[in-house]
Amino acid sequence: MIRSRKELTKAVLIVSPSIAAITVFVYGFILWSLRTSVSAWEGIRPNYTFVGLRNYARLFRSSRFQIDLWNTAYFTVFFIAVCIVFGFLLAYLINKQIRGEGFFRTVYMFPMALSFIVTGVLWRWVLNPTAGVNVLLAGLGLPSSWGWYTDTTRIGGFHLALISIIAAASWQFIGYTMAIYLAGLRSIPEQLLESARMDGANEFTIIRRIILPMLRPITLSAMIVLGHISLKIFDLVMAMTGRGPAFATDFPGVFMFETTFRGNRYGEGAAISTVMLLMVAVVIVPYLAYTFRKEHS
């Protein structure tokens, strides 16, 4: 490749508007947010009087934010688990040279095309306690008085109402998880599995000993992708339940939006956003570093 100095300068010149834009709109704004989060700004007029960590202290003392963090933790764990288990299951089954594979794939993945808002509006109707799934369950003679997203029961910090959000979010993302597992499964050489079968290994052993270990990088990236979606979750909750009874379905994203743009408490809103950024960074920065190192080696 020709790498004359002149040509490289041109290259830099071409990407410089983007670099400038990202510098300002991402890094500049993050710093500005950080500054806001240690300011006294509460009300319509900006007020950047420095108040130290007061907003953070208030935040971590408030019951609502503590609930939000618990909700985020539980939601993240269950959402990832459900997507990975069922995503893998479907990919594994579809990979069995079945007829109508295209149809199944299309059906499982179409929710990916929808907005979280559409999903939320739809699932709020599907899980409506007086209509919805309960009616269907009653028709089948099953227990049918579930509160779904209106349920206020809390077991060990887990709000049962979260199940509804997990169901809707998983409905949307199982297809994606399936797709990346399917791509992974297709890259496993058939001879490898064949020779294992020759050795008398049964299907479960093959899955456990060969397939899953080979798919570990895919599981990792699925966890990263799904995890950082769940840390940022906002749209689905807004459309489906809002903060929910006793904040059963409240998340930092919702709290931040309401605090800042409905309550005009900018300092605290910025503090929430900083906490969100840190949570995501903890997941993403090592992942980015790992990916780039891998690419180089």
Binding site: S33, M256, T260, S273, V280, I284
Partner: peptide, 20 residues
């Protein structure tokens, strides 16, 4: 990588300055 980080951030973290 620094540009890429911009797509992972929760946009809440830049929302207040963006609006201003």
């Amino acid at each position: 990588a620094l540009i890429l980080f911009g797509m992972f951030i929760p946009y809440q973290a830049i929302l207040i300055p963006l609006v201003q």
